[in-house]
Design a protein around this nucleic acid. Structure first.
Length: 308
DNA sequence: TCCCAGGCTCAAC
DNA sequence: GTTGAGCATGGG
């Protein structure tokens, strides 16, 4: 069992804020250590001052992999300074200072956010845990059992009925459709990070004859994937929480037609059309700048934990 | 019990 | 192109 320490001296970082901010759904804490599955290995990690005390189940899950996974290579201080455009975001940044955007596996991230649609975080964790236990490879580590995230191959061989039994509901057919396309090589997820934001998003949400090729991936899911696993720091995912924050705290940014559609979304009366979503998202990206995705994540976490 | 959730698809204008 | 219903399910 490889044990190592990652030195984070001079790097602002909060392990709990990062792992508990709704980016990844498979981490749990026993109050001392955090346990999670990263790629092909299990990681046990504790933050101790300016270092991360780690042990892992695999040699490939080493210092370098952990460094990359937690986005420690990004200059967070500079990034946060650049997004603090007003008092509201400044307050969110100060409250959760050290929250970083992780660099997750694209496949796991994509499928996780397809499953996450129209659900809530506790249940999302349950659904993902179910498919991992049912279809993922079992790994024994630190006296416990863990499951790797299932491969496209394993999930493409599952029946929709089996997937529904994991609690996925109507999302089961999306998972099956995407797994088959990825497994067959129809789309290369690793290639996404090589394109710019706009092109990568196009590839994820492409339509043929008016039908989505990858079912269950709209603009919001695509933005989450691009931000959390494809290094697209300007991606600005807008879910109901973000719509609420934008409508309430940034009314001057959204006036006229876009503003009223955003308000309608917040009131639960309508959902954003793809065109309106792009308008709102584009305004937010222009306002917060190159690292808008970081702003988004601080605002999201801030909004969700307000009444805790 | 009812409302809501890191939305999306599909049919009907 | 835009809109609105429908969607499976479980947490709060």
């Amino acid at each position: 069992m490889p044990e190592f320490t990652v030195n984070t001296e001079g790097l602002p970082f909060s392990l709990p804020y990062t792992l508990d901010s709704g980016q990844a759904f498979r981490w749990r804490s026993d109050g001392n250590f955090w346990y999670g599955v990263v790629g092909k290995g299990v990681l046990k990690v504790r933050q101790d001052g300016t270092s991360l005390v780690c042990s892992s189940s695999s040699d490939v899950l080493d210092t370098q992999a952990v460094y990359r996974y937690f986005g420690l290579g990004e200059d967070l201080e500079k990034i946060l300074a650049s997004v603090m455009k007003d008092s509201y975001i400044t307050s969110a940044v100060q409250t959760f200072y050290g929250l970083r955007i992780m660099r997750q596996d694209v496949w796991e991230c994509l499928l996780s956010f397809v499953i996450a649609t129209n659900s809530n975080i506790p249940r999302i964790k349950g659904m993902i845990s179910n498919i991992c236990q049912r279809y993922g490879e079992k790994v024994a580590f630190d006296g416990q059992e863990f499951f790797l995230f299932p491969s496209p191959d394993a999930l493409s061989r599952a029946t929709s009925a089996d997937l529904e039994a994991c609690g996925l509901g109507y999302r089961a057919r999306y998972v099956k459709n995407i797994s088959e396309l990825v497994d067959s090589g129809y789309i290369d997820l690793e290639e996404l990070r090589l394109h710019d934001y706009a092109r990568a998003k196009e590839l994820l949400t492409e339509e043929v004859l008016g039908k989505k090729t990858l079912m269950g991936i709209g603009p919001k899911v695509a933005d989450c994937v691009l931000l959390f696993s494809c290094d697209k720091n300007s991606a600005f995912p807008i879910d109901v929480w973000m719509a609420r924050v934008l409508a309430t705290e940034y009314p001057t940014l959204f006036r006229g037609d876009v503003g009223s559609k955003l308000a309608s979304k917040v009131a639960g009366q309508t959902s954003l059309s793809e065109a309106t979503y792009e308008q709102v998202s584009s305004i937010a990206r222009e306002y917060f700048g190159e690292y808008a995705g970081y702003a988004q994540q601080y605002l999201f976490h801030h909004a969700r934990t307000k009444n805790d």
